[in-house]
Every structure is written in structure tokens, then in C-alpha cells.
């Protein structure tokens, strides 16, 4: 039976399979791209906060429009996701605050607001709330052709924007102080990066869901760091692994009934990360064993997670 379904998948027997596959790959590519800059800047979990923070926007848009208008939901998600990312920035500055706590606060409180709104929707007559559930874990198969091409258009624009600003972004990622000194407006660039993050998250939530979108932002770039020592190399690996995870995740999710797209993509990405962690030429575990088999190691800067 599984083989049969796998066959169906590869022959694109059903249109929605092609769209689901396309959307999943898109998610992997876009998140892999944006995620690289986040991970290298030490903002890995900002994606987690932004993902969770889209929930009140989705629910709010539903409440306002009264039905499940795809564009409205995505705009709502974008607005509240971006608001969440900015709030993290505000709550992380100054004395008596902790950037890590700021992420946790935004993530959980925005989600709480979203739950309150979802409860309100549940009371509404329209009863189409079931459709909102798929935002939690993602359902790539439910993406319509219109939505798909919309997502592709936004995704391409986003990638183009990052390509245009690649050089200053790379500079800021590597050395913010120096970037500032040669006249790069790092504040604007930072806000731009947050905006890109929000867009990437919104593109992704239909396929992976709000809870797991962070994984696609963090895992492929982290794998990339073991595979290349150069920024461009990390970007390319990250995008490749992201795209592959998307494709394989969509495949697995189609073949095995009951497996949602999001978790499947994440596990495939984790598998690739594991490979990179062990066999990657840059700090991979296997290479270290080969290079220095004898020395007892002291983990110097480990510290608390």
C-alpha cells in the first residue's frame, strides 16, 4: 500500500500533491535562507517567538472578516508576527530584562492571546474553526493553486530582496560594529531582517504550522555550519537541506497516513542535521575523532544552555 501511495506521489496523480510538494520545498528554501542570518546572529529562537506570535493575528483576522479568507488570515499573521518580533526587540533592551526571557514572554503571551481569540471563534456560528487548526501543525495538502502561486510570488520577492542586500547583511552578521562604522544603517537592516523573518514565517505556517516553523529556521542553517566555513557556503547548504527536507517531508506525509507535513519535514531536517553533525568537515564529531584521537578534552566555554 505504501509503495502504491509512493507511486502516486511521484506521478503527481493528483494536482494537490504537486502543490503540496511545491509549497513544502518553498518553505524549506525560504526558511533556510532567512534562518541562516538569524542563527548566525544568535537570534535562533526569535523564529519560535514569531511563529507562535502569528496565532492571534490569524484568529483576529478570522474574527474580523467572519470567515476563512486566506489573504486576510495571512495579513493578520504577518501583522501580529511582526509585532511579536518587534516586541522581543523592545523587551530585550535595557536593565533588568533578559533577551531570552523576552522571547519566552512574547511567545507564550501572544499564544495565550491567540487561544483566547480561538475560544471566541469556537463560540461563533460559522463553525469553520476547524480550518484554523491546521495552522498549528500545518497541512500542505490543503493549499489551493491560488494560494500556492501567491506564496511563490512572495517567496521569490523575499529571496530577491535578500540577494540584493546580501553584502550588508553578511557584513552585519559578521561584525555589526564594523558594518556601522562604514555607514551601513544596521538598525534599518535589522528591522528589514525581522520583516523578512515575519514574511518567511507567514509563508511557512500553512505547510509546517506555527509551532514547528522555528525548526525549519534553525535546523538547516545549523547543519550548514558543519558543512561550510564560509557564509555563502552555509547559505547554500542551508537552502539545499531546507528544500530537500521540504520535499521528503511532503513525500513522507503523503505516504504515511496521519503524519502531518510539518513534523515530517522537521524530522527529515533533523536527520540531515545529524549527518552533518557527525560527518561535517567543519567541527563534525567524526572529523574531530580522526584528527585528535588521543587528547582528553576540557570543554571550555560550554556554560549553561
Amino acid at each position: 500500500m505504501y509503495i502504491e501511495r509512493a507511486g502516486e506521489f511521484f506521478y503527481f496523480q493528483y494536482d494537490f500533491v504537486a502543490y503540496a510538494l511545491g509549497a513544502s520545498v518553498l518553505v524549506g528554501v525560504v526558511c533556510g535562507l532567512v534562518g541562516t542570518f538569524l542563527v548566525l546572529r544568535g537570534f535562533s529562537l526569535l523564529g519560535d517567538a514569531t511563529g507562535h506570535a502569528t496565532l492571534p493575528g490569524v484568529a483576529g483576522a478570522f474574527l474580523i472578516t467572519g470567515y476563512q479568507h486566506p489573504a486576510a488570515l495571512l495579513v493578520g499573521a504577518l501583522v501580529s508576527g511582526a509585532a511579536g518580533a518587534l516586541t522581543v526587540g523592545i523587551f530585550s533592551r535595557g536593565p533588568r530584562v533578559r533577551p531570552d526571557a523576552a522571547i519566552g514572554i512574547v511567545l507564550s503571551v501572544f499564544f495565550g492571546v491567540g487561544i483566547v481569540l480561538l475560544a471566541a471563534i469556537q463560540d461563533m456560528e460559522s463553525g469553520r474553526q476547524a480550518g484554523l487548526d491546521q495552522f498549528l501543525f500545518g497541512n500542505a495538502a490543503a493549499i489551493t493553486p491560488d494560494q500556492f502561486w501567491g506564496l511563490v510570488a512572495v517567496g521569490v520577492l523575499l529571496c530577491a530582496a535578500i540577494a540584493v542586500f546580501y553584502r550588508p547583511l553578511a557584513m552585519m552578521t559578521f561584525d555589526e560594529g564594523y558594518a556601522k562604522s562604514i555607514g551601513i544603517n544596521t538598525t534599518a537592516l535589522e528591522i528589514g531582517l525581522l520583516a523578512a523573518l515575519s514574511v518567511a514565517v507567514v509563508i511557512s505556517i500553512q505547510a509546517v504550522g506555527v509551532i514547528l516553523v522555528a525548526a525549519m529556521l534553525i535546523i538547516p542553517p545549523s547543519a550548514g555550519r558543519f558543512l561550510s566555513g564560509k557564509l555563502l557556503g552555509v547559505v547554500i547548504w542551508s537552502v539545499t537541506i531546507g528544500g530537500l527536507s521540504g520535499a521528503l517531508g511532503a513525500f513522507v506525509s503523503y505516504v504515511f497516513e496521519g503524519v502531518a507535513t510539518g513534523p515530517a519535514m522537521v524530522l527529515v531536517a533533523t536527520f540531515f542535521f545529524g549527518l552533518a553533525l557527525f560527518f561535517g568537515p567543519h567541527g563534525g564529531v567524526a572529523w574531530q575523532w580522526i584528527r585528535r584521537p588521543d587528547r582528553a578534552r576540557n570543554s571550555g566555554g560550554g556554560g549553561r544552555p
Partner: peptide
């Protein structure tokens, strides 16, 4: 263990571990 590797920051390590396990749990 992950964050003791020089090219994985602790926040990335947190993100990798819990999302993977959570995804496995959901499946």
C-alpha cells in the same frame, strides 16, 4: 552537548532539540 560544539550556540541547540522531539511526539 550540542552547545559545547563551537559552531552551535546554546539557543540554536535548544531550538534543534526541542522542535525535533516535539515533531516526533506529534507524529
Amino acid at each position: 552537548a550540542l552547545s559545547s560544539r563551537p559552531n552551535i550556540r546554546s539557543d540554536a541547540a535548544i531550538g534543534i532539540v526541542f522542535t525535533s522531539l516535539f515533531a516526533a511526539g506529534v507524529i
